[in-house]
């Protein structure tokens, strides 16, 4: 059975880069990291708990996770760019959890802001800005969407990708079509968020 036909130039190159990275091609690994580091870093800033700063810089965490994950992906074949991003996001979350278990401590307060003493140190900036309950409602609803809808929302809302980019990575005919798809997904998301009452 031959390789699956990619549906976009980006996906074609991603699939090729992935294969070469697994075979030990350092340049291919670097290209893949470059490609995904920015969106993951932006996503991570809002989503990872504050205290991950104390483990190490978010930048380092993302870099390290990317390198390790991509090198060791064996069976994963992304059908579209969004699928690989989702895989990497989950890898980052798992990495943070592993680090917590290994270290088994919460770092001491840095004292930068006095109010940090009272802040919930497991909270991410998103939790703090929006409220953890609200974030959980949002995430719960996201999980109940179809995968394509979920990825569209994460790409636009959390990773702040442009419509042209979303069109390219999600197989939409045009930026306008991507915009409409995102809009429809958001309405579905609002309906799902209402399901819990």
């Amino acid at each position: 059975m031959g390789d699956p036909k990619p549906t976009s130039p980006n996906l074609a190159s991603t699939t090729d880069l992935l294969r070469r990275a697994r075979e030990g091609d350092a340049q291919a690994l670097d290209d893949l990291i470059q490609r995904h580091r920015g969106p993951l870093r932006r996503w991570a800033r809002g989503r990872l708990p504050h205290w991950t700063r104390d483990l190490r810089d978010t930048e380092d965490l993302v870099q390290e996770t990317l390198a390790q994950t991509i090198r060791h992906i064996n069976d994963f074949e992304p059908r579209h760019e969004g699928a690989l991003q989702a895989y990497l996001r989950q890898a980052l979350i798992n990495r943070v959890r592993d680090e917590v278990r290994r270290v088994n401590r919460y770092p001491a307060p840095t004292g930068i802001d006095e109010h940090e003493e009272h802040a919930d140190r497991s909270a991410s900036p998103l939790d703090e800005a929006i409220g953890r309950q609200a974030v959980e409602r949002y995430e719960g609803a996201l999980q109940r969407l179809r995968p394509e809808e979920r990825e569209l929302i994460i790409a636009r809302v959390e990773m702040q990708q442009g419509y042209a980019q979303i069109a390219a990575t999600h197989g939409k005919a045009s930026p306008d079509a991507a915009r409409m798809a995102v809009t429809r997904a958001l309405v579905r998301l609002a309906e799902e968020m209402d399901v819990e009452g």
């Binding site: 932006r42 996503w43 800033r45 809002g46 900036p125 998103l126 800005a129 929006i130 609200a134 974030v135 409602r137 949002y138 609803a141 929302i153 636009r156 809302v157 959390e158 990773m159 702040q160 958001l186 309405v187 998301l189 609002a190 309906e191 968020m193 209402d194």
Partner: peptide
């Protein structure tokens, strides 16, 4: 539903600022 969309907008706004 409007309240839920407003929440999503807050999330987007935060990510935009970050």
């Amino acid at each position: 539903l409007v309240r839920h969309l407003r929440l999503v907008e807050s999330i987007a706004s935060l990510h935009r600022s970050l």
